[in-house]
Design a protein around this nucleic acid. Structure first.
Length: 881
RNA sequence: GCGAAAGUGGCGGAAUCGGUAGACGCGCUGGACUUAGGAUCCAGUGGGGCAACCCGUGGGGGUUCGAGUCCCCCCUUUCGCACCA
């Protein structure tokens, strides 16, 4: 049989007899370009569908396997939507500004303005080889002045709305990158780009975006947007909303210097505590120092009776005046030491607690007790008010601190089986329970106590309800070269001036010495000829901002630009934007869950509020894809196990490579790339190729083969084949089951199971000695098309179709054809499988049970009358004895 | 520490609603065709047992006629966040 198949192909010398991926992939990539097959007219037609993939940064190594994996998964979805009749717009671009590109340029010693275009060219070449349905007429690069003109414009829009501001701030400084980093770019105290390099704290004037104004909206929308759950959770955690109270503690000045000892402090705190709760929260009648009202933020106002000391962050503005003269030297040293650390390693949980007593006291508004005020670096100035009330009985950090410095620990919550006197041994009690040692609030639950105590304190003006977010404002200044200059001019007379819109873009100049240095200012600051410009307001000489903006600003709006790349006068054309946005499907890596994806949502909300777009969430759906590892290990250059896409495409073809990448694991989880695995997918394509040719040739009649070559209208002539030329009902049934399965799987990005289903169908199709019928293979070509577009186009053409397979529509699923007549029911006795019976699909319970009991393998386990029978139609019969 | 996801044959992985565990593929074993096979095709392939059967989804309990799937406890791995009051 194999032999006769080969012969039939050999009779068509004008066609490639066997599957040659290189040839047909070249052919179709050229054809797609010539016919602009992937460039829909964005102004016309029905059913637009915007399929977006996260654009890559064009690294010099070329396309990474992770890129190919992501883009292929994206492309398959786009092609599937196209087959379903949508006009699909699938653009791509390059995120080519930024530290990653610049650092590489520094490493190889080539100016980024030369290097980056070269890298982009290589990327384009590789991307084309993968066979993506990319509309190459709408590409963009963030480094293109026609693009970053509008990045700068967006900065000005935020400035106009009061959402961009400049402040002196403690920032993360990477000594290696020689620039500031966003908190998001600092991993466990180290630069995300330089593992092992400790980030330092510096104070610099920086531009910030007020993303915190949008914290609540960014959080709320997560409840309804259709995104991967893992991504939404990451964003929720990052925004970090916590509801609590701001409580004001009145400082009550210094005490005698001797009270620094543990015993004396404890005595005072405890004696106050005994009478606690009966006093008015306005305090003890002592006149507080007017400047020392100390607000603290807490999520546990219910525990205020247990607050036995306060802690201020070292940077807290009240520290100098609260510190007793004899303690100033010690305090200065401590604060200085804390300041030298980077912002992040201060947050390492395991670090031993350190701190210094100020010598001052404050009044606990609930108990009236004087409690000592300490300074410690475990309190962070950027969160809350930079000061806390410490409740060592019920907070682990406070407990640890109190133990170390001998501060009093009081129980104010009693859990199950605990009482007011149960000692706190070894650890703080952070669980639920009822209040104790809390005066009139004793007996309330933690939840009730929160409300009651805030209300009580609020009556006396000592507390208010407050919501805090962990999210910080977005620092967008970068002291680097390779980015869009921030479009601002500083004038001695007029102050901060915007670059007028007509003067945009502020071009990034070509400078030789683009290397950053240690000074904390951008390389552009070394170029007076560039930064000295007349003030746009008064015309006097003024100075440009020499920092550039963060790469994440470039990528926060690129999806708006794609449809409008040919326009110079607007960032995005309103009509096209209305037509194509928001993005229908966005696919990318979860490493951007909190950076890119949060910034993008923020910028979109701002543009919405400014009236530029009519939606405030940019992506209707977002799905995070997984990561690819290789032979069970992470891929890395140092391991030398990096997959180079070019090699695999060369050896196996782009179609096999694409299909294998999608087959090796669930798209949203990633998978393990194993070199040998790709052969199975390639075999599948080989058999597809063979099946289509056999079917076609048998349909035409072998004697006519060669007479009318490729253009063939596929009108079956009188068959010379010995087989009856009708499709097999069994095969058709499996076919329609497969059409349904593959469609459903594509819908939910379950690519690996879709491919498995097609392979299964192939096994049915090629079982036995029969030659496949055209009606059995033609729809399979359409099913395969999203995965392996080149071979699908080629086979579709060879089957006699003039139009592209992607314009042929998704094959119709016929439920009647897919329906089974007989099915197999599993028969269980007491839940154990004891046999199987063949029954008609519409079998009644009685018939099924009767048949099941007649089965000898079942009957021998059934003694007497069954207690109970469970019948699950289409599935099983379970007999309980 | 907190949060999220996961743990299934020799391997990658299926099982979408609590209903046949191991689809599909790799690998392996045997066979066919062969001068030859790292090609192709056919058959087999969770473990144990001659068989009837028994065991089996990280471990231990539970719910249920029935659990990979649900509940409780524990172990392990990966990822994210990490002194956020």
């Amino acid at each position: 049989m194999t032999v006769s198949r080969t012969q039939s192909l050999a009779e068509r010398p004008e066609e490639q007899a066997s599957y040659d991926p290189a040839a047909i992939e070249r052919k179709w990539q050229e054809r797609w370009t010539e016919t602009r097959a992937n460039s829909p007219d964005l102004w016309k037609g029905e059913r637009p569908f915007y399929q977006l993939m996260m654009f890559p940064y064009p690294s010099a190594e070329g396309l990474h396997i992770g890129n190919v994996f992501a883009f292929t998964g994206n492309d398959i979805h786009g092609r599937f939507e196209r087959l379903k009749g949508h006009r699909v717009f699938e653009p791509i671009g390059f995120d080519a500004f930024g530290i990653h590109s610049e650092n590489y340029a520094l490493k190889v010693g080539i100016h980024p303005m030369e290097l980056i275009p070269r890298n982009i060219e290589n990327f384009r070449r590789q991307l084309r080889r993968v066979g993506l349905m990319v509309d190459w007429t709408h590409q963009l690069s963030t480094t293109d002045p026609a693009y970053y003109k509008w990045t700068q414009w967006i900065f000005l829009q935020l400035m106009n709305k009061g959402l961009a501001y400049k402040k002196q701030a403690a920032v993360n400084w990477c000594p290696e990158c020689k620039t500031v980093l966003a908190n998001e770019q600092v991993i466990a105290g180290e630069c995300e780009r330089h593992p092992g390099v400790k980030v330092e704290q510096r104070f610099l004037e920086q531009w910030f975006f007020r993303i915190t104004d949008y914290a609540e909206r960014l959080l709320q929308d997560l409840d309804w947007i259709d995104w991967s759950e893992s991504t939404k959770t990451a964003q929720r955690n990052w925004i970090g909303k916590s509801e609590g109270a701001e409580i004001e503690f009145a400082g009550c000045g210094m005490r005698d210097a001797g009270s620094g000892t543990a015993e004396s402090r404890e005595r005072k705190a405890e004696s106050r505590n005994d009478v606690g709760g009966e006093d008015s929260p306005s305090g003890t009648g002592r006149i507080p120092h007017p400047a020392s009202r100390i607000p603290v933020f807490t999520t546990r106002p219910d525990t205020i009776f247990g607050a036995t000391y306060l802690v201020l962050a070292p940077e807290h503005p009240l520290v100098p005046e609260l510190t007793a003269p004899e303690r100033r030297a010690e305090m200065r040293a401590y604060v200085e030491r804390a300041g030298k650390q980077d912002l992040v390693s201060r947050k390492i949980t395991e670090r031993e607690k350190t701190g210094v007593f100020t010598g001052a006291y404050a009044v606990n508004p609930a108990t009236g007790a004087d409690i000592p005020i300490w300074v410690a670096d475990y309190v962070l100035m950027e969160y809350g008010t930079g000061a806390i009330m410490a409740v060592p009985g019920h907070d682990e950090r406070d407990y640890e601190f109190a133990m170390k410095f001998g501060l009093p620990i009081v129980r104010v919550v009693a859990g199950e089986g605990q009482s007011a006197d149960t000692p706190l041994e070894g650890a703080a009690y952070t669980g639920d329970g009822r209040l104790v040692n809390s005066g009139r609030f004793d007996g309330l639950t933690v939840t009730e106590g929160k409300t009651a105590i805030i209300d009580w304190l609020a009556e006396h003006g000592a507390a208010k309800r407050v919501v805090n977010y962990r999210l910080h404002d977005w620092c967008i200044s970068r002291q680097r070269y390779w980015g869009p200059p921030i479009p601002v001019i500083y004038c001695d007379s007029c102050g901060v001036q915007q670059v007028p819109e007509k003067d945009l873009p502020v071009l990034l100049p070509y400078i030789e010495d683009f290397r950053p240095d240690d000074t904390g200012v951008s390389p552009l600051a070394r170029h007076e000829e560039w930064y000295r410009v007349p003030c746009p307001e008064c015309g006097k000489m003024a100075r440009r901002e020499t920092d550039v903006s963060d790469t994440f600003l470039d990528s926060a709006w690129y999806f708006l630009r794609y449809p409008s790349t040919e326009f110079d006068a607007v960032p995005f054309d309103p009509a096209l934007t209305t037509r194509w946005l928001p993005v229908d499907s966005y696919i990318g890596g979860n490493e951007h869950a909190v950076l890119h994806l949060l910034y993008t949502r923020f910028i979109t909300m701002v543009l919405h509020d400014l009236g530029y777009v009519d939606f405030d969430e940019p992506f209707k759906t977002f799905r995070a894809h997984g990561l690819i590892i290789r032979e069970g290990a992470k891929m890395s250059k140092s391991r030398g196990n990096v997959v180079n896409p070019d090699e695999y495409i060369e050896q196996w073809g782009a179609d096999a490579f694409r299909t294998y990448l999608m087959f090796l694991g669930p798209f949203e989880e990633g998978g393990d790339f194993r070199d040998r695995g790709i052969s199975g997918v390639r075999r599948f394509l080989d058999r597809l190729w063979a099946s289509v040719h056999e079917a076609r040739d048998a349909g035409r009649g072998m004697r006519d083969a060669g007479a009318d070559a490729v253009d063939g209208t596929a009108s079956p002539r009188a068959a010379a084949s010995p087989e009856p030329r009708v499709p097999s009902p069994e095969v058709l049934r499996k076919l329609h089951q497969t059409i349904k399965k593959v469609g459903d799987d594509l819908e939910r990005l379950s690519y690996n199971t879709a491919i498995a289903a097609m392979m299964e169908y192939m096994n049915v199709l090629r079982a036995g000695e029969r030659t496949p019928h055209v009606a059995e293979v033609e729809p399979l070509v359409q099913l395969v098309a999203p995965f392996a577009p080149h071979i699908a186009e080629e086979l579709w053409e060879r089957l006699g179709h003039a139009e592209s397979v992607f314009d042929s529509g998704w094959p119709a699923y016929d439920e009647a054809l897919a329906a089974e007549e007989m099915i197999e029911l599993v028969v269980q006795v007491n839940g154990k499988v004891r046999g199987r019976v063949q029954v008609p699909v519409d079998v009644t319970e009685d018939q099924a049970v009767k048949k099941a009991l007649a089965e000898p393998s079942v009957a021998k386990f059934v003694t007497g009358v069954p207690k109970k029978v469970i019948f699950v139609p289409g599935r099983l019969v379970n007999i309980v004895v």
